[in-house]
């Protein structure tokens, strides 16, 4: 496999002015400002290979967006190095910029909003030097996947949030970037649009073998699209590898879902923490190693009609890890 992204000890340190409370300190800071170094990204290293879709997750302020901005050339790092398709991103060479795209769910479309979607696409064609044949072919494909027909002649300012995202994707993919940075691509969307967006991203990557680094607060996005995740916390990489393995590592327990005869409430807390109980169905949190013995005891002591062993829901596992700190 070809390595498309190589990141080595990438760091970004901000100097933030600090000031003690009180008037004296305020006056002193006029003459002599004191600063504190704040490491937003601290010696981050990873590699991405062609065609990979990697989830880039972590709590707010972990340094994900700063990393994405460095990798797309917007920010100049204070240390370390990165190599994307043979380029150093922050040199912002046109040959590099033509091959990457950064798409932010919060601002899917930049540029003038009075133009129609088609005009904006044409503008992208000029800026990114896409020849007419490729433009028509790519537009045809995007059209099929994103259903743009009804949007092409409308002004961007008049589009709804979901339509904006579809157009934002089209505008950034019309030049067929080989490396995609997706920053919260499904933020603020309603459920049906979220699903079509995910489907589209998966389909596009399969079609073009693009390398994707995706940040999202919705674990469902990550679960659906990525086998591999990179988890960041406080500016450093805490985990890099298979998503399933991460989930097992973060949650040393499984969920036993048992259904019992009769709807009257039973006390099962001796087996483990009962998470949910309704209509005779109980979710019991059981340590991974104890699953066989607890199962046996349950079957022996209770009128069980159904029993399943489940992985805990990923978003809860991750949410828990964010809140209690990632080990």
């Amino acid at each position: 496999m070809d390595r498309t992204i190589h990141v080595h000890h990438l760091s970004m340190t901000y100097r933030v002015p600090v000031r003690q409370e009180g008037l004296g300190a305020a006056l002193r800071s006029l003459i002599h400002r004191s600063y504190r170094e704040l490491a937003a990204v601290d010696a981050v290293s990873f590699d991405l290979f062609a065609g990979e879709i990697v989830g880039f997750i972590g709590p707010n302020g972990a340094g994900k967006t700063t990393t994405l901005k460095m990798l797309s050339g917007i920010l100049h790092p204070t240390g370390g190095d990165a190599d994307i398709l043979g380029f150093q991103p922050w040199k912002r060479q046109p040959a590099f910029l033509r091959r990457i795209a950064i798409i932010r769910g919060s601002q899917p479309i930049g540029g003038p909003v009075e133009l129609t979607v088609m005009d904006s696409l044409r503008l992208q064609q000029l800026i990114y030097d896409v020849d007419d044949r490729a433009f028509k072919r790519n537009l045809g494909q995007l059209n099929a996947m994103l259903d743009l027909r009804t949007l092409l002649d409308r002004q961007i300012r008049a589009l709804s949030l979901g339509e904006r995202m579809r157009c934002g994707l089209a505008l950034n993919l019309i030049y067929r970037p080989e490396v995609l940075f997706l920053d919260e691509p499904t933020i603020g969307m309603d459920a049906s649009v979220v699903e079509t967006t995910r489907q589209f991203i998966a389909a596009y990557c399969q079609e073009t073998a693009a390398t994707v680094l995706l940040t999202s607060h919705y674990m469902a996005d990550v679960e659906r699209l990525c086998r591999r995740v990179i988890l960041m916390d406080k500016g450093t990489v805490r985990y890099d590898g298979d998503l399933r393995t991460l989930s097992e590592r973060l949650s040393p327990y499984k969920i036993l879902r048992v259904s019992l005869v009769g709807a009257k409430a039973l006390d099962l807390s001796s087996f483990g923490e009962v998470d949910e109980a309704e209509n005779g169905t109980y979710d019991i949190r059981v340590g991974r190693r104890d699953v066989p013995s607890v199962t046996a005891r349950l079957l022996a002591d209770f009128p069980v009609t159904d029993l399943a062993v489940l992985e805990p829901p990923l978003d809860r596992v991750i949410d828990r890890a964010y809140r209690t700190g990632v080990a």
Binding site: K69, G110, G111, I127, Y128
Partner: peptide, 12 residues
């Protein structure tokens, strides 16, 4: 609003 970003990632 950080809207300069979009200008910086374009090859022009």
């Amino acid at each position: 609003a950080g809207q300069l970003d979009e200008v910086l990632v374009k090859p022009a």
